[in-house]
């Protein structure tokens, strides 16, 4: 466990059970694997719908998005094409701070991942 990233796992109930991974700290080349491992663990334990809460992530590099991509791939079997991109239905993002949102948007991850500002709304969307 890297000292600069903590990940808490909790459960929310919407139309389906939603596993919330709440990351706290920085996500970069040295620790993105930790996020991926934590998500893999949740998926192995039966999670099918996952919300990544980025409220307390102060920094995320493009390497950090490798974990986001790996989780997307793990959860989305045959994603529906919306426009030109295969849009995620089982993996969504919650509340990235401005600096993190900038990286997400720069690489176009917002084009296939839904981003919510409110937990209840995010959970209800699954």
């Amino acid at each position: 466990m890297s000292a600069d990233l903590q990940i808490a796992v909790s459960q929310e109930q919407g139309r389906v059970p939603v596993t919330v991974l709440s990351a706290n700290g920085e996500i970069g080349a040295h620790n993105y694997q930790q996020l991926q491992d934590q998500a893999n663990e949740a998926i192995a334990a039966g999670a099918t719908d996952l919300l990544l809460d980025l409220t307390h992530v102060s920094y995320m590099s493009s390497a950090g998005l490798r974990a986001v991509h790996a989780i997307y791939k793990k959860l989305e079997g045959q994603p529906e094409m919306v426009g030109n991109v295969p849009k995620a239905a089982h993996f969504k993002l919650l509340n990235p701070p401005e600096a993190v949102l900038k990286v997400i948007k720069a690489l176009g991850f917002d084009m296939f991942l839904e981003i919510y500002a409110d937990l209840a709304e995010a959970v209800a969307s699954f």
Binding site: M81, N84, P86, L107, G108, F109, M111, F112
Partner: peptide, 12 residues
Amino acid sequence: SPAIGLFSNMRY
């Protein structure tokens, strides 16, 4: 489009 190499069924 999003970054290149993410998924194989992208249309450009």
